[in-house]
Design a protein around this nucleic acid. Structure first.
Length: 184
DNA sequence: CCGCGAATAT
DNA sequence: AATATTCGCG
């Protein structure tokens, strides 16, 4: 007990096969889910409910300078700040969203597919297909992402096109070269 | 009223 | 620094 962590971490599970057309995703670490007593959603092609409740209630919000944490990868955990669970009272704590590499990937992917033209929060949220994410979440990150792009433009002879944010994920900034694959 | 974008706050 | 929240505008 104790030391449950201070921030909720979500992860988006990639539906493999690289699906970038259908709008469906479902991936829950049943082992973890069981540990958290998560209700396994039916295997129906409906309601991708992967709500994961974290028994982590702590008011402690004193953040200290943390050393860099290693972002791992492997178990795609998807957590939704939703409560619920039978008789579960809404005792939800707003956790700060942690943009993991996986989520970043979805975000970047969504933005790239939409194009700088339609890369608006609402659309991004929709194509990301990450449960629990809200428009405001992506809007906030989108802003930072745009600022980052701006910065890469005026590179002061340093800092290559890499976003040294959270855990340095790598990708190529696409200047919106559309006219190719764009599903409608 | 809704949603985006930038500013602003924590 | 990273994310959330607020505010102005269309």
């Amino acid at each position: 007990m104790g030391g449950c962590g201070r921030v909720l971490e979500w992860e988006a599970g990639l539906p493999t096969a690289a699906e970038l057309t259908p709008l469906s995703h479902q991936l829950i670490p049943r082992a973890l889910a069981a540990a958290f007593r998560i209700e396994l959603a039916g295997a129906s092609s409906d309601s991708p409910t992967s709500h994961l409740s974290f028994p982590c209630d702590d008011d402690d919000e004193d953040y200290e300078e943390e050393e860099e944490e290693e972002e791992e990868e492997g178990e795609p955990e998807n957590a939704a700040p939703r409560g619920g669970g039978g008789g579960g009272k809404a005792g939800n704590k707003k956790a700060r969203m942690v943009w993991t590499a996986e989520l970043h990937r979805r975000f970047i992917d969504a933005v790239a597919r939409l194009g700088d033209r339609a890369a608006v929060p609402k659309a991004i949220v929709q194509v990301m297909n990450v449960e629990g994410i809200t428009r405001e979440h992506v809007a906030s990150h989108l802003q930072k992402y745009r600022v980052y792009l701006k910065r890469t433009r005026t590179t002061h002879g340093s800092v290559p096109p890499l976003m040294p944010t959270t855990h340095g994920f790598t990708f190529s900034p696409q200047p919106s070269s559309d006219t190719s694959s764009r599903r409608g």
